[in-house]
Design a binder for these strands. Structure first.
Length: 424
RNA sequence: GUGGAUGUAGCUCAGUCGGCAGAGCCCCUGGUUGUGGUCCAGGUGGUCGUGGGUUCGAAUCCCAUCAUCCACCCCA
């Protein structure tokens, strides 16, 4: 068919049966998050571009090449959010929550936008569920946050995941390490592919992200950041890992885990899935103790993560959705109508059934046979038939589609009779 | 931005050596004058992604282009 409009590259339609899967997950996640003390936050999908420039950071791929940025009619630069942490921090400050006692714990679910090249598990509009816990510097909170992420995966039966953790230090200890790293890399420039050399000056830590074998090998020969952490960062990291161990969250240190966003400090972590011989990152997060201050608020430590919903669903590996069978919504009662006035009579007479069941009144004008077929396809337990005879006698034919029994029902008794039939 | 694969009916896909555009599923109608899930018969549905080229003749060969998927980069 010559369709006039197609969906944008990297976007998807989710319908019916697949939406049910999403909601199944979302319901469980909301329940888990409430148990960890999180409340939901919803923020706008568009934000001032500067918010992401300052938080995510220039020099990151997200900001440099993946943002959906456009100009408003008033001439302001706006951006479709590529991630949520910046928005939550903005909202935290804008709503005057800095004076709230204790740690503010928010969770969110919603679409994010990054102008990437799409591929398996990667979309330009994708969805994340995540948390931000703002106001505590405690390493114990880092551990709880990681535990929360695992609880979310648990709640939807996601198996076979591994937790990687690292510490990237703080402004006290990181600069010295970065300097040494920069020197080391400059001495070995010939072993770094040119496209990655650009990264060297802006954020050399991100070379650790490279999958290039030569670079990996090179960096494997360099001292890990853990060897350069200051005393308090070292202690923080040890407490995070120790607490995870006590909570029986298997985790491994990954010195190459530096994450692609600027605002992280100390703890960074990632949760990965093995799919064949490939690993894909389902979730990532970490501590960001300086972001709130950077956004104009008081110095406030925080930690959070986000989970990729599409990737998680992909990993769940459920039975594939049958495209033929999943294009009709389910109902309990189906009303087939035939002849003049039947549709009107059928709708008015059966409408009260909607108080306790799912109902569909067929107004297609097809043959009774076709309507009955649809009733079956829609999973109806009861078929109500309205024709001229029923109109004349003030009744409906009620057919039980499970056992084939059929009887006339007086219109006045319809509610009671259908309710009983559905319950039995 | 780079590389690879694939584009044929609503869906999943065949289509040989260049020779009438196909199957299964879905849908519609009938068998059953008003009855589903099984069965039988019939039917609707096509810009063969698009544009050009070669040829008597192109879904098929060539070129270009677009789209989708996969991979790289990077990330969720």
């Amino acid at each position: 068919m010559n369709i006039k409009f197609r969906r944008l590259k990297g976007t998807r339609d989710i319908l019916l049966e697949e939406v049910e899967r999403w909601r199944w997950c979302e319901d469980r996640w909301a329940e888990v998050l409430a148990r960890y003390g999180y409340g939901e936050i919803r923020t706008p999908i568009i934000e001032p571009t500067a918010l992401f420039l300052r938080s995510v950071g220039q020099g990151t791929d997200i900001v440099d090449k993946e943002m959906y940025t456009f100009e408003s009619k008033g001439g302001d630069s706006l951006t479709l959010r590529p991630e949520m942490t910046a928005s939550v921090v903005r909202a935290y400050l804008e709503n005057g929550l800095t004076r709230q006692p204790g740690t503010m714990k928010f969770y969110y679910m919603g679409p994010m936008f990054r102008h990437d090249r799409p591929q398996a598990g990667r979309y330009r509009q994708f969805h994340q569920i995540g948390v931000e816990a703002i106001g505590s510097p405690s390493p114990v909170l880092d551990a709880e946050v990681i535990h929360t992420a695992m609880a979310l995966f648990d709640a939807v039966d996601a198996q076979g995941l591994t937790v990687s953790v690292n510490s990237i230090g703080c402004p006290e200890c990181r600069p010295a390490y970065v300097d040494d790293l920069k020197k080391f890399l400059n001495d070995n420039l010939d072993r770094i592919p040119p496209p990655m050399q650009a990264r060297l000056d802006i954020n050399p830590l991100r070379l650790f992200d490279a999958k290039d074998e030569g670079v990996q090998e090179l960096l494997a020969g360099f001292k890990p950041i853990s060897s350069m952490l200051c005393g308090s960062c070292k202690e923080h990291f040890q407490t995070v890992r120790g607490t995870l161990d006590e909570m029986e969250v298997p985790n491994q240190e990954d010195p190459s885990l530096v994450r692609g966003l600027d605002y992280y400090c100390r703890t960074t972590f990632e949760i990965k899935a093995q799919a064949g011989r490939k690993t894909s990152s389902l979730a990532g997060g970490g501590r960001y103790d300086y972001l709130v201050e950077q956004c104009g608020g008081p110095a406030t430590p925080a930690v959070g993560f986000s989970i990729g919903i599409e990737r998680t669903l992909l990993h769940l590996n459920d039975d594939p959705i049958d495209p033929q069978r999943s294009r009709q919504s389910k109902v309990d009662v189906y009303v087939a109508c035939r002849g003049d006035g039947a549709e009107r009579y059928g709708l008015v007479a059966s409408d009260l059934l909607r108080g306790f069941c799912r109902l569909e009144v067929d107004t297609s004008g097809r043959s009774l046979k076709a309507q009955a077929k649809s009733a079956n396809l829609r999973g109806a337990k009861i078929l109500l038939i309205v024709g001229q005879e029923e109109l004349a006698t003030g009744s409906l034919q009620m057919k039980n589609l499970e056992n084939g029994e059929q009887n006339p029902v007086d219109r006045g008794e319809l509610l009671a009779v259908v309710r009983k039939a559905l319950e039995g």
